[in-house]
């Protein structure tokens, strides 16, 4: 039986055109929701904040074009530099303390000699399930000057350290808290990486006479390079975006901005001082810092190398 095609009817032409085009249009329609949401919730705010960084607002309605005035002001702002130093201090402290601890924990939990591995994995991972705000509240008690867990130990030696009250101790306190919260999380990445290393490599190394340390240096670490690079970059980005932990732990970055970070300074300018243009400028400077550091890290770790 023949199906009649009404080529001359306008409705039929449109119908045919639609059916002919649908194969081409369909993929775009499927991916459209993502792009639509991205443009609304990411693209527009990003461009808007870039434009905002060239303006300064005063009040809820008035704004004036200042060009790169906010950027020049920022580079001459001592509190910004102090916040940047604190943030860098935290990032370096975190990377040098947290990542080796995370790797060590992963190696221990991957070895045959440790018992109760599942429980230990959960125990080390658990802190990351606690929201940063609560971690800060808990550690406020841990660092309590009179009755805190840490000072109780120091008090035995007659020391009473104002962890959150003296300039020099504030960032170490924040770093140690960060280690407690995130080491277990990074341990999971390392553990996954360790479990992906083929056993034959260790067997071959043993045949060549390598001891445990040599196997670690020449087999484990090179095999973990992509995981290390990932954890390194992600931890660095997380460290540079630090906000809630020191904000609550130090009650807004005091004393003397010793606990202030770049994002905290951004928040203060945007929401407490109502200097939205300046806050947007801090955001973009932070973006460039993160982008440059991440690219340098990835290059140094050889992620862009062809193998």
């Amino acid at each position: 039986m023949k199906i009649p095609i009404h080529r001359n009817e306008p409705q039929g032409i449109i119908k045919n055109l639609f059916w002919n085009q649908q194969q081409k249009i369909a993929p775009y329609l499927f991916i459209a929701p993502f792009y639509l949401l991205f443009v609304i919730f990411m693209g527009y705010p990003l461009i808007s904040s870039l434009v905002m960084s060239l303006y300064e607002m005063r009040g809820f309605q008035s704004r004036v074009f200042v060009g790169f005035g906010n950027f020049t002001d920022l580079f001459g702002d001592p509190i910004f530099w102090k916040s940047l130093r604190n943030t860098a201090y935290f990032a370096v402290g975190t990377l040098t303390l947290q990542l080796p601890i995370a790797l060590l924990l992963a190696i221990l939990l991957n070895s045959k000699f440790v018992k109760g591995k599942n429980f230990l994995r959960l125990a080390f991972f658990a802190p990351v399930l606690v929201a940063g705000v609560f971690v800060a509240i808990i550690f406020n008690l841990v660092y309590d000057q009179r009755a805190g867990l840490v000072n109780q130990e120091f008090l035995l030696f007659g020391k009473e350290i104002g962890w959150l009250n003296e300039e020099n101790y504030v960032m170490p306190a924040v770093i140690l808290t960060g280690v407690w919260q995130w080491a277990g999380f990074n341990m999971i990445y390392f553990l996954a990486g360790l479990q992906g290393i083929r056993q034959e490599l260790y067997e071959a190394a043993a045949v060549d006479g390598a001891n445990g340390w040599q196997a670690f240096i020449h087999v484990t670490l090179p095999s973990l390079r992509p995981v290390i690079a990932f954890v390194f970059v992600v931890s660095m980005i997380g460290s540079l975006q630090l906000f809630d932990l020191p904000f609550i732990l130090t009650n807004g970055g005091e004393p003397a901005d010793a606990g202030s970070t770049i994002v905290m300074y951004l928040y203060k300018n945007g929401f407490q001082f109502m200097r939205l243009g300046y806050a947007a400028t801090i955001g973009w400077v932070l973006f460039f810092i993160i982008a440059v550091i991440s690219i340098v890290q990835l290059k140094l770790l050889g992620i862009f190398r062809d193998e």
């Binding site: 406020n140 309590d144 009179r146 009755a147 959150l164 009650n251």
Partner: peptide, 14 residues
Amino acid sequence: PVYGTWHGDPSNFA
């Protein structure tokens, strides 16, 4: 100096 981060800190009460 105030113990802890402000006058209402548990350290100060201790």
